[in-house]
Design a protein around this nucleic acid. Sequence first.
DNA 1: CTTGAAAATAAGAACGATTCCTATTTTTGA
DNA 2: TCAAAAATAGGAATCGTTCTTATTTTCAAG
Lengths: 129, 129
Amino acid sequence: MEKKKNRSRKRDAILACLAGTKTHPSADWVYRQLKPDFPDLSLGTVYRNLSEFLESGQIISVGSVGGLERYDYDVSPHAHFICRKCHAVIDVREIPLPPLPELPGTLEACAVTFTGVCNFCQSASSDAQ
Amino acid sequence: MEKKKNRSRKRDAILACLAGTKTHPSADWVYRQLKPDFPDLSLGTVYRNLSEFLESGQIISVGSVGGLERYDYDVSPHAHFICRKCHAVIDVREIPLPPLPELPGTLEACAVTFTGVCNFCQSASSDAQ
DNA sequence: CTTGAAAATAAGAACGATTCCTATTTTTGA
DNA sequence: TCAAAAATAGGAATCGTTCTTATTTTCAAG
């Protein structure tokens, strides 16, 4: 028996915030983004709603990047490139997944994550020379 | 100019502990594992040494699983299956990586992670019926 | 339009993993 | 044997996240 959900302007705004960016934000980023429009928004509300979106499959988690959980509105299959310097999370498409091997359990999700230094940080550090 | 490293019996034991298990342990697991043999071992020492091993490339991180960072002595290319119920991390081999697309930065590492419910938890929950 | 029960929230306390700090101990090379 | 450098213990501090409780909002029924 699942609980009835009431409408909430703030919940809508949190989801819209995720939908409207490609930055794969953290809870805090969403909070700071919405705070001007919702001066009494609390960080706990952002966390609670993000958790609910996760559970209902409306969003996915990119995992913890630099200690901050990052979220993604795009639930379609794609990979991520994560910069270990600036912690940018960038979509990587056109990754044809290989035929899956036998797994030690039932598969629910698959994440492909590349790590390195993004082009921006790369040129920034060569400038610094 | 890199710093000279002195020998340390505890550091050796921490690395050996990782080398001797396939459970992809957390810092706390390593700590509890070694505490009987090193009664004055402190958790900070485990964290510090794990960080140093990470930085020197002697081990890799599996990422945060259920809020705990998990480490892997096996640095050869392989994937992981993570059970969302018991948080087991299980090696998955024979994943031929697809030809890589153009990436938005320099590639340093690639992680392939499957998520689901492991066979053990699966049968445990069907028993519970 | 009321009204009351359920749902959502704000505010901040609590929690827990990890990092940091400092005095002490260990290691190493001379 | 000795002194400088490295490593550690112990515990405080940090900080992302979760939890608690009193208050506010939503919504359906009357």
